[in-house]
């Protein structure tokens, strides 16, 4: 793609976002929606910047990010290990496959009350919920990626004298890396969503709690701010993961 086409694409992409904000502004300024229900976009963005600069809001973001990363990291470690193990061993595969078949479509958020009862209302229950939701995309993409590694690659490595146990780390893991990273990207977005929801349902801090507090006092402006923040966080984290992907997969074809 030429750089000119890229610029055209970006401009085209900005149009619906600008239209949406314009529609929002028009609805308010022409009086179709009272400002108490739909605050003008200018107010919301001003409040967002004001909040981002305040220390207490930064602490809420930090609490959310901590839970997000803790849960996501557990999911990455567990997902990659179990996915690789299931791809490598037929016996394990026979156990893991039906379990995943049953657990993947199970609405994990329904487990949240049980987690609250078992590990309490603190960080742990939210981290575990994030981990449970983020686990399956990573596990499945690792498993699919690792089972599709070309047999020739493994044979060549063995012919070149690589010990059997090292093949997993020297051949299978790198070859499955693009698929694993795709799974991580899906899980990262899911983690953003789940951590926010868990904080909305029961929490004393975090972005989700900010939204619930605002909703209880009918502060419409403060309800929009955490939603925009989590959207921005999602975009930033996604961008960082893209960067990591480009770095890890340098030299891979068609990244």
């Amino acid at each position: 793609m030429t750089s000119r086409a890229v610029i055209a694409d970006i401009l085209l992409g900005i149009v619906p976002i600008a239209l949406l904000i314009a529609l929002w502004a028009a609805l308010v300024s022409f009086g179709y929606a009272p400002a108490a229900l739909l605050p003008p976009p200018g107010h919301v963005f001003k409040r967002l910047i004001q909040q981002l600069l305040s220390g207490s809001y930064e602490q809420e973001i930090a609490a959310t990010l901590f839970r997000l990363f803790a849960g996501f990291s557990i999911a990455v470690v567990l997902g990659v290990c179990v996915g690789l193990a299931a791809a490598a061993s037929p016996a394990l595969n026979a156990v893991v496959r039906p379990l995943v078949r049953v657990l993947a479509p199970l609405p994990k958020v329904a487990l949240y009350p049980a987690l609250l009862l078992l590990v309490g209302f603190g960080h742990e229950s939210k981290i575990l919920l994030v981990a449970a939701d983020a686990l399956f995309p990573i596990l499945l993409s690792t498993y699919y990626g690792a089972s599709m590694v070309e047999q020739k690659l493994i044979w060549s490595a063995m012919a070149a004298g690589t010990p059997r146990r090292q093949i997993l780390f020297k051949v299978v893991l790198p070859a499955a890396a693009p698929s694993i990273l795709t799974g991580c990207r899906i899980s990262l977005v899911i983690s953003c969503i789940v951590v926010f929801l868990a904080e909305m349902i029961t929490s004393t801090d975090g972005l989700g709690h900010v939204l619930v507090t605002a909703a209880r006092t009918f502060q419409a402006v403060d309800m929009f701010v955490p939603l925009i923040t989590i959207s921005l966080l999602g975009l930033i984290l996604n961008g960082l993961l893209e960067g990591l992907r480009a770095y890890l997969l340098r030299g891979f074809p068609e990244v």
């Binding site: 970006i10 085209l12 619906p16 953003c192 969503i193 929801l197 909305m200 939603l227 959207s231 999602g234």
Partner: peptide, 22 residues
């Protein structure tokens, strides 16, 4: 695609159920 995609990227990380109060 290039018209709609950026909008979807912004909406994606927003928890839909969190829109409930609004």
């Amino acid at each position: 695609a290039s018209f709609v995609n950026p909008l979807l990227m912004i909406i994606y990380p927003v928890p839909k159920a969190a829109l409930m109060p609004i």
